[in-house]
Nucleic acid binder design. Structure first.
Lengths: 173, 173
DNA sequence: CCTAACCAGTTGCAATTTGCAAGCAGTTGA
DNA sequence: TCAACTGCTTGCAAATTGCAACTGGTTAGG
């Protein structure tokens, strides 16, 4: 019944690794967060890295059990399930921002896939907070109204991505 | 020869996961960074989570290959190897800080193992930078002099940890 | 000099996890 | 009515993990 029971240790890094420390969980959350994917097939067929369906099913199940996601019926389709981020997974935004910044600096990233990470890094905690508010609205159904003067983060990220893709399409390979 | 060759995708999150996305790599870096461990035996026998020697050997090899660590002979002992962090692994400090903060908030951490994470979060980017300077000095041998007025971060973390341990020793279990 | 402890791993093996391809029952839209 | 789509499941080979024992060499103490 101890906080440590069933875990290798009570260290916050270790406990996080026990949940997210595999080759796929973080990528699924990334796709839900930044790619706006909410359905199984959507995650499966648009996966950049080519996740297998059995792995996806297993990870979704685990993430739901761990409180990182919730699963609900889609009212528009009897077979469809909608997966949503929870508050605890939404609060991974700063973690994603730092990992994205680190990866963009040190690893052989492709330009069109790293532009969003760079933008998110430059935006800083203020932009992260705004993005988390947007995620709460669409995933938790919170009726928070956005500042009418601000451009939604997801829209900024989308525009930046498409700008790079268009530019590369015109000139390079 | 492309940036994507040999990788599942050029996404910074994915590339980071390919390096650190397993149950042990991040913990080894954590122990080197925050536990000041530099030798194989040291990492093996003081591992909170009980890593096996073959896994440790494999991960150290991989981390060296990936440029996250360097390995050198210890001049005081012919059989000893000294492992050091590199600039790229030192720059994971903000990532550790965010993960530690997230884990401390959402997971069943033990108080004595999370106090350092909380302190590092409260310290913010300024403290992270100072800590990275300290790591550069001891792992990269850089001759950067610390501001004489500031208490080293590792010392602050150590003091906070010991304070919790002492307090819990007196009262609780 | 002898010996026990210490050094960084290695080896063998069983159990678990992964990745791939194919398949499934039910649902929907044309 | 039927093809396409829904979220998975199954079977199986390959890779990875975890455990325990072991290795060849080094060093400190008596």
């Amino acid at each position: 019944m101890d906080a440590v029971s069933d875990h290798r240790s009570g260290c916050p890094i270790n406990l996080t690794v026990e949940i997210l420390g595999d080759k796929w969980s973080l990528l699924i959350l990334r796709d839900m967060m930044f790619g706006n994917r909410r359905h199984f097939r959507d995650l499966l067929t648009h996966s950049q890295e080519g996740i297998a369906s059995n792995i996806l099913a297993d990870r979704l199940k685990r993430l739901v059990e761990q409180g990182m996601l919730t699963k609900a019926d889609d009212p528009t389709h009897k077979q469809k399930a909608i997966y949503s981020l929870t508050e605890r997974s939404i609060e991974l935004v700063p973690v994603f921002a730092q990992i994205g910044a680190w990866g963009s600096k040190w690893l052989p990233v492709s330009e069109e896939l790293s532009i969003r990470a760079i933008l998110l890094e430059q935006g800083g905690p203020k932009m992260w907070e705004q993005f988390m508010r947007e995620l709460r609205r669409s995933h938790l159904g919170e009726h928070v109204y956005a500042d009418p003067g601000e451009v939604p983060v997801w829209m900024q990220l989308k525009a930046a991505y498409e700008e790079v893709v268009a530019r590369r399409g015109r000139s390079g390979a």
